[in-house]
Design a binder for these strands. Structure first.
Lengths: 291, 291
DNA sequence: ACTTGTTTGAAACATGTGTTTCAATGACCG
DNA sequence: CGGTCATTGAAACACATGTTTCAAACAAGT
């Protein structure tokens, strides 16, 4: 917003000082900002009924070096943030030097993570989460699959879920072969699978097996066409952009937690009672530390 | 929305029938719709790592005559987006009350999560993370402890860490009694502990044991005075505010991921080499699914 | 009317863009 | 093994794009 506003303000304030033809161009740009982002300079010039050179001259007059630069600002306004953030991240990285390289990396990570979360809770995905909840509530068993880097998200859900429902099964193969837990899976059950590139074979196999047994699948993944999402009943596609070599599972974890929150909210009093029963049982096992 | 959705659906449904290179292109387009609207075909092809001709061929394969036509749909989507948001808001208000309540909860969760992340990357904590990295780099062994709801964050770190360092030990007690892995821990080692209220006794005991053996501790926790943070060498206090009954571990996970990114960045070429060696080893074990 | 300076649009330019062509490769099948 | 056919990437292509150049048109002051 800031970048775009700056240029717009400049265009308005300098308007009086511009030559007639430039005013014509400036006026068209002010009235049709989207065209700047999407159409070519020549097309814009034609639409504004000025020769292309006028636009180039206008760029110089308002202190912008090049049309590309000008257009980038208008494009960023149309994007949800990710590009602008990424670009800003790149800018800061190129300008500053090793001195506080670590700080810059961390700041850039923070921005990316926030973007990822923000993108995860878009209307589409929220609708998908609500649909997923309905499916979970009606399932006989809920199998949760996630391997490798996706395991934390799967575990997180399974751990919380089992505090208020006893039909959750974490498929992790700690005791024996992976997939053992899936015996008997069927159309009345549900599988929740988490995976991002590179997809781990076990996870894909588990999903394929579930589908072969007509068990519907909810896929939390990084793409609509990831091997686990392709034929899923419900896809929850989350962004996993990361500054580092590893993809980020923050958004995936967040979505898992939100699913739990949603289930509890919809479960009402009964869910809360089960949770306190579970807590009591854990306390009886002396699980918690009291000070 | 209609036009864009049609093309998107077509891309997804035909995905399986496409050649490998076209799948690569299709996937990139599905994952980065904005780029289609704003960048050139050649730029997109480069980003997707396919030759330009593959994009042209893909257009033919999904029954679109020309790239221009395809891009127009994506451009229109960008322009229509604000309208569709408003429309959706009106829809939800007029339809069911239940769904509306769910969406409000999710929006509220999203805001809270973003706040938690934002708070986690404050200057203080970033400084702490940098100090933590220095300690990790000099440790003989790095023990990672986290139980219950904190386990995902601990696991996440351990999993990524072990891809480029071989001195990481996840203390999880899957094979035998919890804490077995800590035998021999000493002043030259380091323990990373994750815990939030209610503190699980195992975690507290592990931290106490580490301290009794003069092993420094990095505590990722919810309070400066939590039992694991009280005498820690470095405290990374993250917010875990949540709309639901359970606290949120999103910020903790994010911090763990950031630590890894930082370690890799500081590790330079050597760290990257180890990562690719680890990836090769995993590939040799046929861990990953290739399409 | 003549200079001086600005403004304007056509044309030239180098580069970028989308598409087509074509030879090389590889997979499949008799 | 050889033959067929789909798949692939480099190069060539025709055209579009943003910028620069240049001469014509114009305005204003003497």
């Amino acid at each position: 917003m800031g970048l775009y506003s700056d240029l717009r303000e400049k265009l308005i304030s300098d308007y009086g000082k511009l030559s007639p033809q430039m005013q014509k161009a400036a006026r068209y740009i002010l009235d049709h900002p989207n065209e700047v982002a999407l159409r070519s300079m020549r097309a814009l010039a034609a639409a504004a009924d000025v020769p292309p050179s006028t636009i180039t001259r206008l760029m110089g007059a308002i202190g912008v070096g090049t049309w590309q630069e000008f257009r980038d600002h208008y494009q960023n306004r149309l994007l949800d943030q990710p590009a602008s953030y990424a670009q800003r991240a790149r800018e800061t990285q190129s300008t500053e030097h090793d001195a506080n390289r670590d700080e810059h990396l961390l700041e850039s990570i923070a921005r990316t993570e926030i973007d990822n979360i923000g993108a995860a809770f878009n209307p589409d995905l929220m609708a998908g989460m609500i649909r997923a909840c309905a499916a979970i509530e009606n399932a006989r068993h809920v199998y949760i699959v996630g391997r490798g880097a996706a395991y934390p998200a799967a575990y997180q859900f399974a751990y919380a879920y089992r505090l208020f429902r006893d039909n959750g099964v974490l498929v992790d193969g700690h005791a024996g072969a992976f997939g053992d837990e899936l015996r008997g899976i069927g159309r009345r059950d549900l599988m929740i699978a988490v995976a991002a590139k590179p997809y781990i074979r076990d996870t894909v196999r588990a999903v394929d097996f579930a589908r072969s047994q007509h068990c519907p699948v909810i896929a939390i993944s990084d793409s609509d066409v990831s091997p686990i999402a392709l034929d899923a009943m419900t896809k929850l596609v989350v962004r996993d952009t990361s500054q580092s070599f590893f993809q980020s599972f923050t958004a995936a974890l967040s979505v898992m937690q939100a699913l739990v929150a949603l289930l509890v909210a919809r479960g009402g009093q009964k869910a809360l009672q089960r949770i306190s029963a579970a807590e009591e049982q854990l306390a009886a096992f002396d699980t918690y530390f009291e000070d």
